[in-house]
Every structure is written in C-alpha cells, then in structure tokens.
C-alpha cells in the first residue's frame, strides 16, 4: 500500500509529537508537522498532503476551508465531517477536537485508521492540557493564599494557622472560595499600601 502524506498543523511542539507517535502506530506514512501558521496556504501547496489534521478550534482552520473549496467546490474534498458514510467517526473527531481535510478520492478504509489514531491522541492531549491548567490554577491559588496569610499575620499579629482559619471562616460566611477571599484581601492591601 502506498504511503500517505499527512500534514499536522499544531503550534505546540509536544502535542504535535504525541499525535505523530499515534499516527506512526497506525502504519508507515510520511508525516510533516507545521508549527507556524503564517503562510499556511503556501506551505500546504509545497507539502501537497493527502490528509491535513488540525485542531477544530485552531484559528487557521478557515484557511483550509478556502483551499478545499478552491480544489473544486462540489467535489467535497473537505473534512471528515462531510463523510456521511461514517457519521459516528465524524462526531467522535469533532468531539475530540480534531478536524481532518482529505484529498478527493482517498478511500474511507485508508482514512479511518489514521483518524482513529488522531482521535485517540487528541483525546489524550486534551486531557493532559486540562490537567496542566488545573495544576497551574491550584498553584496560583496556593500563592495568593500564602500572600493573604502573610498580610493577616503581619497586620493582626497572629500565627499562620490562625490566619488561614480566619480566611476560611470568612470565605464560608461569604460563600466564596478561600482563594477568592485571599485575592480580594491582597488587592485591598495593595490599594492601601
């Protein structure tokens, strides 16, 4: 079977690498990664891929719609979304956050394993990204609470434990998160200092 040329448009290098690994497992294909989206149309013309994989929410996606259209408006070479033969696959792809643009005439049985692999990898990287965001947010919360505690300890002459208890009680009374109360305190202290 001939190798397919697959182009992955993904700014984040680590994410792109994960997707490449997934596709490598689906068979021997020529995979190109594009991390810069400036001049996208020109780069695609150079690579001339059989399949382009891009995140559903990538701002550059509309450029691909334009290219797909230019290749023949009613040939529908566009996106797996088009392919009514497998509505389930289409939905799975969009829910995972990946859209695929496929050249006209490529058989569905050749596309499916690649898209299955891409969907699995996109799910994985989305999960990783969500976890990373949650970790970051927790870290931010921790920092702001520490600063609020320090302000209370200094101005009220209380120890760390009492400062945290005070923050927590205030948060409960106001039905807010401890980090929110801490944020308000830090901001107010900033204004007063």
């Amino acid at each position: 079977m001939t190798r397919l040329s697959i182009l992955i448009v993904e700014k984040d290098h680590d994410r792109a690498q994960k997707i490449v690994e997934g596709i490598a497992a689906a068979g021997p294909h020529d995979v190109t990664v594009l991390t810069e989206t400036g001049g996208l149309a020109r780069r695609i013309a150079e690579v001339s891929p059989d399949i382009v994989l891009i995140e559903v929410a990538d701002p550059s996606r509309d450029v691909l719609e334009d290219l797909a259209l230019a290749s023949g408006p009613l040939d529908r070479p566009v996106a797996m979304f088009v392919d009514h033969s497998d509505e389930h696959l289409t939905r799975a792809a969009i829910e995972a956050g990946v859209s695929a643009y496929v050249v006209d005439g490529l058989q569905p049985e050749r596309i499916k394993p690649i898209l299955d692999a891409a969907i699995a990898r996109f799910h994985m990287v989305s999960k990783m990204r969500a976890e990373l965001a949650a970790t970051k947010a927790a870290l931010e919360d921790r920092k702001i609470i520490d600063r609020a505690k320090a302000i209370l300890m200094k101005s009220k002459g209380i120890d760390e434990e009492a400062a945290y208890a005070l923050l927590r009680k205030t948060a409960m009374d106001r039905k807010l998160r401890v980090a929110e109360i801490a944020g308000q305190l830090v901001m107010a202290a900033g204004l007063l200092s």
Partner: peptide
Amino acid sequence: RMANWSQVRDMLAMGA
C-alpha cells in the same frame, strides 16, 4: 467564544 467560522458551523451542525 469560538476560534474560526468552520468551528461555529460544525458545532451548530452537530448540536453542540
């Protein structure tokens, strides 16, 4: 808030 018009179209089409 969405990032491109294709996404808006796809999300509407699939009922998201």
